[in-house]
Write a protein that binds this DNA or RNA. Structure first.
Lengths: 399, 399
DNA sequence: CTGAAAGCGCTTACAG
DNA sequence: CTGAAAGCGCTTACAG
């Protein structure tokens, strides 16, 4: 009955393209790539199985605790919150009562009274990008030290979604917001607006004219220079940049840094290939590069996703890395370890970015006027086999 | 001055192990692996740069809007909320006033009045695991259709943290919670507790004796069978399982399914290697397997992280995949595409998992008694080069 | 159609 | 040390 409803509801949506019935084990191998699956459902009447369930879902309030303990709600609040003078005895009484009743503070009431709750928001372009996934992870860790919870929002790199998310966070009166702006220009107005209402720290990417905003990111120019110096030492003379467009600050900084460093190092640059931070783009960029009369000695990717796409693209088309072409990434995600050959990349100090950004946000929470601090952290080169550098061993020991 | 404070505060923590000064460009290559970086800070006095900033951070309330529009707060609420009868004229007046004042509803007040706000929580073991990152991404998408925001919490696969996060979510009176339990046994008590207070749906993993709880996941036995059948067709006779322990439902289901399918397919199983879902474990498991008298024909990994670790481990030690040994993954993350050779893996229908879980949660929100529904979705085999199967082409067209 | 009032759950001056 | 009361911002019966 419930199962029937469920299927009916979903028959209307096209997310489930096809429902196959029959013995699951009999699904032929030829079906495997097709987006087909079987539902196995057991619907259980929870009323029978869980006698505790009836009458449940009735949250116990502080008033309930106070009544049960025979004290005023004010005293109950103080006893639980460890605020003001409360006698040892009542303190214990209230706490025991609260435990017995399974009391849990309603953060909504508390937050309303106090103006904000212990939540900060973070808006990232795409949590499924390993770099942002790790960043979010680090932020969560550092925020926990301040007893702050994190509300994560994914803008999908779209302006509309970003605006919606930022406003939702603001209306929720979060303590502050970390944001990786979707765009260098178009993201600015909303972020400026929001920053007038609550503490905002830009992370990784910035918007234009952001002197009044805070920012924590990395020295992209330094990172690109590290990697170009490295391929140069590995013997590369012609290099090509495969990165993202100028719509994000990171895209433009890395692209411009590439041009600058190539010039100062005396390398020859081929025409860059520019699109988005996607594995698929790296794949297609490899094809584009192979159609050129001459492959560059080294390809500098704008991030690890593109780099792994390039790697796969070249290898699938019969080119050897690093023998035929050197490849480098950027970010230092797990992807760099996973490829084979391992990827030479530029490591971002993610834990330190998170720590610096959290510290900055805390400062802005304490003092609204302390925005406008721009922090850039140093990257480190992580040599891998994709440039013919030993991951461990000689190069490292030399230091 | 601010910069100085910042450094001082951080000198106490050990997150910044060393601060190098001097020309960033002069950092020697030998330093690259070391956790060292330079801070580049510009601190700007935002009071000078942003004249709008003073007097800011004063949120405008509904009362403010009502006053400015010359109506009661009740009318203002109705006008903005589109509830009850309001004249066309006052409706417009109130809305214009609200816009002019930059009014944004305070979700805290609204939620307190209404009992809950439009937020659901999701607790995952590790957002930086690409599988969970993608899952979270899909959940966010599907929840948006119901105007629900998502509070993401990362349990790090630790029980203490999981309990803390679940309670924080509950005290925030979220509408419901999705949880990927850290453990099959130890996670049960808290999850049962919480499920008595608000709708809970287990995702991916379950706890023991969860008949009264809902669950949305995949048919792990079917997935393992798909992959074993596949390597068998590719000629494998001896197989080894490298997966996670029985502390999670997924770990035990896949391990048990392996034993069962091996028997029914007439394959020979080597002793399994069991630990955690980590790339590093896959790496070390490869070494362990190579110390055996005979390498198995195929290694079935418990997930893609382990599989990519195995792949890297074998390749680094001079074994060829798939020539010397076949390797398969599980989950169908981006990692499978990125490796080279591409990884044969079992794809989880992530969008459908998210859709089914969200649907189930919505049902539980509407009807507290509708928990206890267990849904398992079908996986699909995704053949890659790690088992000598073409990624695209003949095999697919045959269907 | 509109307003005065109550109340969601909590904390914190203010009196005692 | 403890309690009565106000109030955070909002919505919704209840009267008009």
């Amino acid at each position: 009955m419930l199962a029937f409803n469920w299927n009916a509801r979903h028959a209307e949506s096209n997310a489930i393209s096809k429902v196959t019935t029959g013995d699951p084990d009999r699904l032929r191998l030829t079906d495997t790539i097709v987006d087909t699956f079987v539902l196995i459902m057991n619907v259980v009447d929870s009323r029978r199985l869980d006698p505790m369930n009836d009458g449940a879902r009735m949250a116990v309030s502080l008033q309930d605790v106070a009544n049960a303990a025979g004290v005023s709600i004010a005293t109950a609040s103080r006893a639980l919150g460890n605020k003001g003078r409360v006698s040892e005895a009542t303190m214990r009484l209230v706490r025991e009562t609260a435990d017995r009743l399974g009391y849990q503070v309603n953060t909504l009431g508390k937050a309303l009274r106090e103006g904000s709750d212990g939540v900060v928001g973070i808006v990232v372009p795409m949590v499924s990008n390993p770099f942002y996934a790790s960043l979010v992870h680090e932020f969560e860790d550092h925020l926990a030290k301040f007893d702050l919870k994190m509300l994560i929002a994914d803008s999908h790199g779209e302006l509309d979604r970003e605006i919606e998310r930022l406003e939702a966070l603001a209306s929720r009166r979060v303590r502050g917001i970390f944001v990786v702006p979707a765009y260098f220009d178009e993201s600015r107005p909303t972020i400026m607006d929001i920053s007038r209402q609550l503490p905002v720290v830009q992370v990784d990417r910035r918007v234009e004219n952001d002197e009044a905003l805070s920012f924590v990111g990395i020295d992209n120019a330094g990172g690109i220079d590290q990697v170009l110096r490295h391929v140069s030492e590995q013997g590369a003379e012609t290099v090509a940049f495969v990165g993202a467009d100028d719509r994000t600050s990171v895209g433009r900084e890395r692209r411009q840094a590439f041009a600058a460093s190539v010039a100062s190092l005396g390398l020859t640059a081929q025409k860059p290939v520019i699109d988005r931070y996607l594995f698929e783009f790296g794949l297609s960029a490899a094809s584009q590069l192979m159609r050129r009369s001459k492959l560059p000695d080294a390809v500098i990717a704008g991030d690890d996703l593109i780099a792994t796409g390039l790697l796969a693209g070249f290898v699938r088309r019969g080119r050897a890395v690093p023998e035929d072409v050197l490849i480098t990434g950027f970010d230092g995600t797990i992807l760099a370890d996973i490829c084979s050959p391992t990827l030479t990349t530029v490591r971002q100090p993610m834990a330190e970015i998170a720590e610096a950004a959290v510290t900055q946000l805390m400062r802005q929470i304490d003092d609204a006027d302390s925005a406008g601090s721009h922090i850039r952290l140093r990257t480190t080169l992580r040599p891998g086999d994709s440039t013919g550098a030993a991951t461990s061993g000689s190069r490292r020991r030399r230091g």
